[in-house]
């Protein structure tokens, strides 16, 4: 129900989101989030490395969690990999539901979990060289708030394939 894609080509948000409402009249809300490369501190390019054998499965697991938690009529996750420059989209998440609350929450959940539970690594290029981005504790905190009462996380779950 939530489509996932990993691609080295630019993300076309309109193309990715169109299927969520095509030939449907029951969708009341679509929330779309797009993350872009910023030119912070002279950043000239960003390279996304990933673990191909695991990535789509990890995304499908995260998508299945969202679908189990909220009444969604559809969704899409598109993650870019490879080298990109400031202004280009890194990631797109879109979710459709009857009502906005579920769509907003599911989109935020998907982004929080994408940042902490999918095998991607960012390397930043600047004039001085290339450096790997360190994981942020604030991202872990954001992801942890979605853990259920048992404290269960996706780390203990087998992929939903």
């Amino acid at each position: 129900m939530i489509a996932v894609a990993v691609q080295s080509t630019p993300i076309d948000a309109a193309v990715a989101v169109a299927p969520l409402t095509a030939e449907r009249s029951d969708v009341g809300a679509v929330v779309t989030f797009t993350g872009f490369v910023r030119d912070d501190n002279g950043l000239t390019a960003l390279t996304l490395e990933h673990y191909p054998a695991m990535t789509e499965c990890a995304l499908a697991t995260i998508a299945a969690q969202a679908a189990a938690r909220w009444p969604l009529s559809g969704g899409v996750i598109v993650h870019r990999v490879g080298r990109m420059v400031p202004g280009e989209a890194i990631v797109l998440v879109a979710v459709a539901s009857s009502h906005r609350s579920a769509a907003f929450q599911a989109a935020e959940f998907l982004m929080d979990w994408l940042k902490t539970k999918a095998p991607f690594w960012k390397a930043e290029e600047r004039a001085g060289g290339v450096t790997w981005v360190a994981a942020k504790a604030s991202d872990d905190t954001a992801a942890d708030r979605w853990n259920d009462r048992r404290g269960e996380s996706v780390f203990e779950l087998r992929p939903a394939v």
Binding site: L48, H79, I90, V91, L114, K115, P119, A134
Partner: peptide, 12 residues
């Protein structure tokens, strides 16, 4: 087994 070793992830 296939064992992958890496830093904390930084995607999204």
């Amino acid at each position: 087994a296939e064992v992958a070793i890496f830093p904390p992830v930084t995607g999204g």
